[in-house]
Structures are given as structure tokens and as C-alpha cells.
């Protein structure tokens, strides 16, 4: 066997994959070739070195713990895959087509009544706004009457004095200091 042939078979020789006749030839070559023998020895030594390290065992409880974690992440998270076949489920309340149709009609009616009620409420609000506007118009007429010097006023001087007093109190904040004169102004004890 030549060195070239030996080198091509070195890995297989070191891994015990050669047939007996090849092994005999390789062994014969090693007897006469120092370089190939050194190469073969270092390959065996490397295999020995790599197989030497041992992985430390984790804590004794680790394996049970990791099995639980794996099952939690797989089986238990998709339990429908392993669900036992149970009895057939009873039809639910909304499974009947008649019930569903009835509920649909009831819902439509409820929406209709709700719309009518809201429309009526809206009309009531419009009425209230109109009444407020009317009251404002009447009030402004009364103020104009109060301010006028007409002989035909409907207010007596006493009435005018009381009204002026009320307006004074309800006026600017500075006028609030005159509360002590309230009875004088209004004529009410």
C-alpha cells in the first residue's frame, strides 16, 4: 500500500470501517511508514480526546420539570387534539331557526320603537326651545316698559323701587356689598 492510498483510507481505518484485507494492508504499511503512523496515531488520539469530555447531569428534578414544560407548551396548549370523544352536545337555545327568526323580529321592533321615542323627544325639545324664545321676547318687552317714561306704565313707583333694588343686588359684584341695605332697597323686612 502506498502512502497516498493509506491517506485515502485513514479515516475509515480509524473508524473501523475497512474490510479485513484492507486492514491487514494498512497495518503492514504502518510498520514501514513513520509519517502515516504518526498521522494515524494523532487521528486516534483526537477521537479519544473528543470523546473524553462528559456533559454534567443537571439536577435530579430537571428531567421531570422539562417534561412538564414541554407538555405544557404542546399537548396542554392544544388539548383539542387529545380530547376524549364525549356525548353529543345538546342543541343550544339559539340553535332553532324559529327562535332565531323570532329574535330577529323582536330586535327589529325594538329598533322601530326606539326610533319613534327618540323622534318624539326631539319634538318636545323643539317645543321647549320655542317657549324659551317666547319668554325672552316677553321679558325684553317688560324691560323696555320699565325703562320707558310713559304715564301708562303698569308699574307703581314702589314696584319700580323694589325691581331696581333686585337688579342692583343681582348686578355687578361690587354691588353685593350693599346687601345690608337690602331691606331699604326692596322694602322687604
Amino acid at each position: 500500500m502506498t502512502c497516498r492510498t493509506f491517506q485515502s483510507l485513514l479515516e475509515s481505518f480509524a473508524d473501523n470501517e475497512l474490510d479485513p484485507s484492507q486492514v491487514a494492508q494498512a497495518r503492514e504499511h504502518l510498520k514501514s511508514c513513520d509519517i502515516c503512523r504518526e498521522e494515524y496515531t494523532s487521528t486516534l488520539a483526537l477521537k479519544q480526546l473528543l470523546s473524553t469530555p462528559t456533559v454534567p447531569d443537571p439536577d435530579p428534578g430537571y428531567w421531570d420539570e422539562v417534561t412538564d414544560l414541554i407538555l405544557a407548551r404542546s399537548v396542554r396548549s392544544t388539548s383539542e387534539y387529545f380530547r376524549e370523544p364525549g356525548p353529543a352536545a345538546r342543541p343550544g337555545l339559539f340553535d332553532s331557526s324559529l327562535t332565531r327568526a323570532t329574535l330577529s323580529v323582536a330586535a327589529s321592533l325594538a329598533i322601530l320603537f326606539m326610533a319613534l321615542f327618540l323622534g318624539e323627544t326631539h319634538e318636545s325639545q323643539a317645543d321647549r326651545i320655542a317657549m324659551t324664545e317666547q319668554a325672552m321676547i316677553e321679558t325684553s318687552s317688560m324691560v323696555a316698559l320699565i325703562n320707558s317714561d310713559s304715564e301708562e306704565t303698569m308699574w307703581t313707583p314702589e314696584d319700580q323701587q323694589r325691581l331696581t333694588g333686585c337688579l342692583t343686588i343681582m348686578g355687578p359684584p361690587g354691588m353685593m356689598g350693599r346687601l345690608t341695605d337690602l331691606s331699604d332697597l326692596t322694602g322687604v323686612e
Binding site: V55, W63, T67, L71, S74
Partner: peptide, 19 residues
């Protein structure tokens, strides 16, 4: 669909894979 079989497979291979 046997979950026990899966647990057994995990138990048999987990050390090999860890190593």
C-alpha cells in the same frame, strides 16, 4: 392522539438531545 405516548417519547429522547 395518545398524549402518554408523546410524554414517553420525550422521556426517552430528552437526555440524548440535551447531551
Amino acid at each position: 392522539g395518545d398524549s402518554d405516548a408523546f410524554a414517553e417519547l420525550v422521556s426517552r429522547y430528552q437526555k440524548k438531545i440535551y447531551h
